[in-house]
Simulated scan of single mutants.
Amino acid sequence: MTEPRTDTYDEWLRARVPERGLRPKAAAVLDVLVSQPRRASYGSAAELAQLAGVNVATVTRTAQALGFAGWPALQQELRARYLSSLSAGQVAAEHAGAGSPSSRSLRRDLDSLAVLNRRLDEAVLLTIAEAVAAARRTVVVADGSYAAVGLALAHNARLAGYPVAAVTAGDSELANVVAALGPEDVLIAISFWRLYESTVLAAHEARSRGTRVFALTDAASPALAAAAEEVVMVPAEGEAFFPSLTAGIAVAQALVTQLAAVDPARTGASIEAAEAMWAKFGLLHRRPAPPS
């Protein structure tokens, strides 16, 4: 059974308030965040401070009281959650602007990769890689367009020598796979924007069976976070009506690179075996030259 849901923007934000409460000025900042989600999602710390009648330092301290390193980290999740409350058409309207759409998209992805590079905890990737390396098998759950991230992760992890499979469509297949999971397995849930209910349910069911569960997402819902041992926060805001997968693919690549370093001999042997089979099947248009 899934945990009680507190996925709405204001419920999630108020749930982060410490038990001791907030000081009056911090409470004023919180009121602005709750009552004006769009301005909180896109405004600067100075703008938020002006709206709340406080100084910028108070905005920073409020973000820290809510469990974030500072205002930029809080705003990233605020925006992800705000966008998740909108329809696809509303998201597209939010991103309408001057200039070339393709150029805006590229700049957005570059910004997201910069944010990811600053905030990604490499220790978490190491934990996931070691769990996958030790597992009997790993299941990657990724539906819709997010399947691209899951398929890339699973494909390269198998090439690295580990039994990893992606489940990307069909609730019946997902149900059958989850039913076979146990304490020796790992499940990696990948979902962004509004999240798929089937992905959240699979994470909880796997956790209840003793499976180690990890998540890659842009705004961890309480339900998904409750099931996951670790959550990797991935910037996924795009410039159109769909989330960007660029940072998600980058995390998948980083994770596989870390996985390959766990047991280099195993990965080397797996790659050599794959190369030999590719040659037998004649798969490649350009083949590597034989060793001299």
Rank of each mutant, 00 (worst) to 15 (best):
V200T: 12
P101R: 06
L195F: 15
E173F: 15
W12F: 15
V213A: 10
L83F: 14
E94A: 03
G53D: 01
R108C: 14
V91W: 02
A92R: 09
R39C: 00
A261L: 10
P235D: 10
R207V: 02
G182M: 01
E122Q: 12
R137L: 01
L125W: 06
A129C: 11
S270D: 07
L86N: 09
T58V: 15
D31R: 00
Y196P: 00
D109K: 07
L224N: 09
L174E: 00
T62G: 00
T138M: 06
L201I: 11
V140T: 06
A114M: 06
K25A: 14
L153D: 05
E197D: 12
A134W: 05
L51I: 00
G144L: 06
T257V: 12
E11P: 06
G182K: 00
G70H: 08
A15W: 00
A45Y: 11
R81T: 01
N176A: 13
H285F: 00
R107K: 11
P18F: 07
G268S: 11
I249Y: 13
S145H: 07
L33V: 09
A63Q: 07
V177Q: 01
A260G: 13
W278Y: 13
L110S: 14
S221G: 04
R38Q: 10
E229Q: 15
S41P: 01
A27H: 03
D263L: 01
R212G: 01
S198P: 00
D10T: 12
A165L: 08
Q75T: 02
A189V: 08
R38S: 08
L110V: 09
F281E: 08
L78Y: 02
R61T: 10
G161F: 01
Q64I: 04
A274D: 14
E47H: 05
E184Y: 10
R39L: 13
A225V: 04
F214S: 14
S44K: 01
S84Y: 05
R104Y: 09
S112L: 04
V177K: 14
